[in-house]
């Protein structure tokens, strides 16, 4: 089964009477356990595609199946539950809750899954250990380096045992060494646990570590290199 199957996916924005076609018909299949990079110039629609794949947004037209389910058949609540169970997100700017400990940040997806507190903490601790932050459980984002914050975000993405992790420029705000470390974590996650990884990047070096590169330009897939 495929993690994602998209056919004729489009997404248009209406902006002050002008229609912006951010995606203009994307056909894409990403299998279980794949490691793919989406690359392309700025404004080509990479983030828009990620948001659609992550069920944060709905396509203007086209069909998208996530884990075999046509998302157009799901209402907002069901989409939220799908995100919670199937997908982990990593963002360029980390998106951690300020004034909240690393442990509680990581446990947040489990709150919405209705997991009891003790269990949540246990699993969040294990996830933080997996990203090498066992010594930072009670630190707040402001007390951690950018690399550490992004590792907390990765721990949060994997705490719920997702099928896919979607990462939009996960190394974009990090220096080479920290970026390297984050990529290493994602690679291990993919290799050891078979979690599919889809990441958006500008950096050729990062893209080349993926087994597949999907080139996007002007809202279309230009090249798909495996």
């Amino acid at each position: 089964m495929s993690a994602f199957e998209a056919a004729g996916l489009t997404r248009s924005y209406q902006l002050e009477g002008v229609t912006v076609d951010a995606l203009r018909g994307v056909d894409l299949t990403i299998g279980d356990g794949e490691f793919a990079a989406i690359v392309g110039p700025s404004g080509s629609g990479k983030s828009t595609l990620m948001h659609l794949l992550g069920c944060l947004d709905r396509p203007t037209s086209g069909v998208l199946r996530v884990g075999g389910v046509d998302v157009s058949t799901l209402d907002d609540t069901q989409l939220a539950e799908l995100r919670n169970r199937m997908i982990g997100f990593v963002f360029q700017s980390f998106h951690l809750l300020a004034r909240t400990s690393a442990l509680d940040n990581v446990a947040l997806p489990l709150v919405y899954r209705g997991v009891a507190k003790a269990d949540r903490r246990k699993r969040a601790r294990a996830a933080l250990e997996a990203v090498g932050l066992a010594h930072r459980l009670d630190h707040r984002p402001s007390q951690m380096s950018g690399g550490e914050q992004q590792r907390v975000a990765i721990a949060r993405a994997l705490v719920g045992d997702p099928q896919v992790v979607l990462a939009d420029e996960p190394t974009g705000n990090l220096d080479t060494r920290n970026g390297e470390e984050v990529m290493g974590l994602l690679e291990r996650l993919n290799a050891d646990q078979g979690v599919a990884i889809v990441l958006v990047t500008h950096e050729a070096e990062v893209a080349n570590r993926a087994r597949r590169q999907i080139h996007v330009r002007d809202g279309l897939i230009e090249r798909d290199v495996a």
Partner: peptide, 16 residues
């Protein structure tokens, strides 16, 4: 707003 977006991305439903 960002916090709300994040919570929703992580699986918070409208009613949550």
């Amino acid at each position: 707003t960002k916090e709300i977006g994040l919570r929703k991305a992580l699986g918070a439903r409208q009613r949550d």
